[in-house]
Simulated assay, not measured.
Amino acid sequence: MKSLALKYGNNPHQQPAYIDMPDGNDLPLTVRNGRPGYINLLDALNSWQLVRELRTATGQACAASFKHVSPTSAAVGKPLSPELKKAVFVDDIAGLDDSPLACAYARARGTDRLCSFGDFIALSDICDVTTAQLIRREVSDGVIAPGYDPAALEILRAKRGGNYTVLEIDPAYTPGAEEIKTVFGIHFHQGRNDRQIDESLLQEVVTKNKNLPPQARLDLIIGLITLKYTQSNSVCFSYDGQAIGVGAGQQSRIHCTRLAAGKADTWFLRQHPLVLALPFRAELHRAERDNLIDGYINQNEEDVCAEGTWQRYFTSRPTPLSAEMKAEYLEKITGVSLTSDAFFPFSDNIKRAAKSGVSYVAQPGGSIRDDAVIAECDKHGIVMAFNHLRLFHH
């Protein structure tokens, strides 16, 4: 197939829309079901690059959840704790632990469930039945993978009344060294960002604390690869084999950090005993539960628990989760990793990150205030490595 017609461009009035190869060769992907749109393909191709690179770097099955050309999360296929399974609504899936790919997808989709609503999914490995079963019950636009088990493909083809987008990409395909983008009729040319991200980028530890354990190294690598395919400015909080908070596309780095930290806090708080014990009515859809959980954690829990309100959603009145209870719970969190696609210009980023349990940082360095940033890390006992690699993505 040398070209593929799309539903429309960025918006429905932008037609015609299609993709092809500039050299006239066949496209390296096949549509196994549905009809993708322009943004679907941008998400698919960016997310596929992320999981392919993460697979190479970690040797583990990987998955990513993308929305509007940035990842909500990326994860490797580590088994989930019982608390995390319940928090991300997969505690009813038999055999989940037997599928690393399904574990990776459960982690990626469950990280930021509000932002992942209507996502595009990337899988590093051939999609199995367990992973397809997870995808089937989530609101999603499509999936890209290097292949599909026959039974998994049939499950996905039945999604969205038979209109779910399923893409298969040639895992051997490698693009050329030059990238070309057209803006306002003008062609932009640049070398493709093929810089390999691995532990060699974590060698220059500039803080007093230099203890960088294997799990932290894995989480920092996950964070850096995630940022490589995130709209800049961007920072990423990662923990236990997955990105748990991505701050993307902000003009100020502190806003990136605040946004990502807030998402990371919410990810941890979803595993709070009071959240796990919320007595939802059985008829509530998964998206409705997500909205209620977000309101319970991040807004005024009294709005959710108030008399005359809770009866619509719960079988009994939930215990309010106070600000003091949240602070006490989050204060115990440590071992979180923070990565940035460019240097931290001020120490305020580290101050905010420390409040969300950050113990490890990787960033390019090169700010005139590096000394102040290092001093702030030393104040909190944080380990920081300079990787000298900017990862802007636009």
Score class of each variant (00 low, 15 high):
residue 394 H to F: 09
residue 92 D to G: 10
residue 286 R to T: 15
residue 249 G to K: 12
residue 30 T to A: 08
residue 289 R to D: 14
residue 218 L to G: 01
residue 352 R to I: 15
residue 149 D to N: 05
residue 21 M to H: 10
residue 72 T to I: 12
residue 330 L to K: 02
residue 320 P to T: 10
residue 272 H to P: 01
residue 378 D to H: 08
residue 282 A to I: 02
residue 135 I to Q: 07
residue 17 A to M: 07
residue 105 Y to T: 04
residue 190 Q to N: 00
residue 12 P to W: 10
residue 175 P to G: 10
residue 262 G to R: 06
residue 5 A to C: 06
residue 235 V to W: 03
residue 298 N to W: 09
residue 262 G to E: 11
residue 94 A to V: 02
residue 259 L to V: 05
residue 69 V to W: 01
residue 248 A to N: 14
residue 265 D to R: 15
residue 319 T to S: 03
residue 20 D to P: 01
residue 34 G to K: 00
residue 122 A to F: 06
residue 356 S to R: 14
residue 165 T to C: 00
residue 88 V to W: 09
residue 114 L to T: 09
residue 393 H to K: 14
residue 232 S to R: 12
residue 133 Q to P: 09
residue 222 I to N: 11
residue 344 F to V: 13
residue 175 P to N: 09
residue 358 V to M: 09
residue 370 D to H: 05
residue 190 Q to E: 04
residue 327 A to Y: 14
residue 247 G to K: 04
residue 90 V to M: 11
residue 252 S to N: 10
residue 353 A to G: 07
residue 114 L to Q: 15
residue 346 F to K: 04
residue 242 Q to E: 08
residue 150 P to L: 05
residue 89 F to R: 02
residue 3 S to Q: 03
residue 279 P to V: 02
residue 245 G to P: 06
residue 17 A to R: 08
residue 117 F to Y: 12
residue 309 T to C: 12
residue 148 Y to E: 03
residue 315 T to Q: 02
residue 63 A to Y: 10
residue 38 Y to C: 05
residue 178 E to K: 13
residue 308 G to Q: 07
residue 203 Q to N: 03
residue 212 L to Q: 10
residue 241 G to F: 08
residue 49 Q to S: 08
residue 216 A to L: 11
residue 277 A to L: 11
residue 108 A to T: 07
residue 231 Q to H: 11
residue 11 N to K: 13
residue 103 C to H: 01
residue 282 A to Q: 14
residue 259 L to G: 03
residue 65 S to E: 15
residue 23 D to Q: 15
residue 285 H to V: 01
residue 189 H to P: 06
residue 101 L to I: 05
residue 46 N to Y: 15
residue 179 E to D: 14
residue 169 I to M: 09
residue 317 R to M: 11
residue 216 A to Q: 01
residue 266 T to P: 08
residue 179 E to Y: 12
residue 73 S to P: 02
residue 166 V to E: 00
residue 352 R to H: 12
residue 389 L to Q: 10
residue 282 A to K: 14
residue 146 P to W: 11
residue 24 G to H: 15
residue 369 R to Q: 15
residue 236 C to Q: 10
residue 12 P to A: 13
residue 382 I to R: 07
residue 273 P to V: 09
residue 102 A to Q: 06
residue 95 G to W: 00
residue 238 S to R: 00
residue 148 Y to K: 04
residue 191 G to A: 04
residue 199 E to K: 11
residue 102 A to P: 05
residue 362 A to F: 07
residue 14 Q to I: 09
residue 324 E to W: 13
residue 137 R to W: 05
residue 344 F to E: 04
residue 346 F to G: 14
residue 164 Y to H: 11
residue 356 S to L: 03
residue 254 I to G: 11
residue 150 P to A: 03
residue 22 P to A: 15
residue 253 R to I: 11
residue 338 L to K: 02
residue 95 G to S: 07
residue 244 I to A: 06
residue 318 P to R: 14
residue 241 G to L: 13
residue 148 Y to W: 04
residue 321 L to K: 00
residue 293 I to Y: 02
residue 64 A to Q: 05
residue 213 P to C: 12
residue 317 R to S: 04
residue 321 L to I: 12
residue 348 D to H: 06
residue 364 P to Q: 05
residue 158 A to T: 08
residue 305 C to G: 06
residue 88 V to D: 03
residue 101 L to R: 08
residue 350 I to S: 08
residue 7 K to A: 13
residue 202 L to T: 15
residue 179 E to V: 12
